[in-house]
């Protein structure tokens, strides 16, 4: 019975994102049938399948990049959130704890204020995300003692600092033109995604995920605390630095294309812990699956629910909060 359960869980975790991937092609203003989707997706590798250029364009240029982006962003935020919770021994932190989101947000604001193009907004967001975490890390290094608490507090401080700069940027932004763009970016959306933007984030995202997956078992040891980790042969400072670099690459890359999307990095790790338990060996892969599925679902709602696009950041909270509170009520008997 138990073994059976395990296989059911694994199968669901593998099949759910695949199923949603194909399902998402069917959703949208322009109706496409399942057969057309399959034929179109297969057409590049088999020229016998002929499909109309209109459908091909929608599938490859519009829906495919958006679906992949939603899945990558969801998976990144979720796995980085889970890793950060382990690194900081704290189930309340999420992927933006070290200031990535605020830094990226300010980078995007700056690019918008400078009237830079879409492309520059993404690059600025990515770089400022990395810079803010670097500042956080360097500040924490100037304190000899304190360890992870100092790191988290530095992150909170740097977030507050960049959030203030974001407010400043909003204050001086042109209210008819740039302010709406800033506001929209900060609420998170994938509507401006295209294949080029996607290609830029693929390298940081895949390398970040690769590193986290390789190191995931050892994360258990770190999650027991620095002293215990060291007594078990792990160098906590070095190991944490590697993990933070991986998580920061993931989060900054995700935020650079999607804007600020809250809740995924906090909510998904908790949902996954209820499904597969706290062992990071199982938890991190589960976060990839559920994170990708969750954000894809949310993005589908965002682009199809009403006539205009609803920013994803709004939906993740509106849908995520009740789910989270419901699970909190059900599931946390083992937590002290």
């Amino acid at each position: 019975m138990k073994i059976w359960n395990k296989y059911v869980t694994i199968s669901v975790l593998i099949l759910l994102p695949i199923f949603l991937f194909f399902l998402s092609f069917l959703l949208g203003r322009f109706p496409i049938s399942p057969l057309e989707v399959i034929l179109t997706l297969l057409s590049p590798i088999n020229s016998n399948f002929t499909v109309s250029p209109a459908i091909s364009s929608i599938v490859f240029n519009i829906r495919l990049p958006r679906i992949i982006a939603a899945m990558l962003v969801g998976a990144s935020l979720a796995i980085a959130g889970a890793a950060f919770q382990g690194i900081f021994k704290n189930p309340l932190v999420s992927s933006d704890i070290l200031g990535v989101s605020a830094g990226s947000g300010f980078g995007a604001c700056l690019a918008i204020l400078l009237a830079a193009g879409n492309w520059m907004i993404q690059i600025f967001a990515f770089l400022f995300g990395l810079i803010s975490v670097l500042i956080t890390y360097l500040i924490s290094k100037t304190y000899k003692t304190g360890g992870i608490l100092v790191l988290v507090l530095s992150g909170v401080a740097i977030s507050a600092f960049f959030n203030a700069l974001i407010s400043g940027a909003k204050f001086i932004a042109d209210p008819y033109d740039k302010l709406p763009q800033i506001t929209y970016w900060l609420m998170g959306s994938l509507s401006s995604i295209n294949l080029d933007k996607l290609l830029v984030i693929i390298i940081p995202i895949f390398s970040g995920i690769f590193v986290l997956l390789l190191l995931r078992w050892r994360l258990n040891v770190l999650a027991m605390g620095d002293e215990e980790a060291q007594s078990l042969g792990v160098n906590p400072q070095k190991f944490r630095a590697i993990l933070i670099i991986a998580c920061t690459l993931l989060t900054a890359a995700a935020v650079s294309v999607s804007g600020i999307i809250g809740w995924v990095g906090l909510l998904i790790p908790h949902i996954c812990r209820m499904i597969v338990g706290p062992d990071h060996k199982k938890l991190l892969p589960a976060c990839l699956s559920i994170g990708a599925s969750f954000l894809l679902l949310i993005d589908n709602v965002s682009r199809t629910a009403i006539a205009i696009e609803v920013p994803i950041g709004i939906l993740t909270a509106i849908i995520g909060v009740p789910v989270f509170l419901y699970l909190l009520r059900r599931g946390y008997s083992q937590w002290s």
Partner: peptide, 28 residues
């Protein structure tokens, strides 16, 4: 005075003892 955070199963906690013998990118 161990402070616990995550409810790891007993076997997972005990397996951590193998950590010095397992290379950084491997698991038990």
């Amino acid at each position: 005075g161990h402070v616990s955070t995550f409810p790891f199963s007993v076997i997972d906690v005990v397996l951590m003892g193998r950590s010095p013998y397992i290379s950084l990118t491997d698991s038990p």
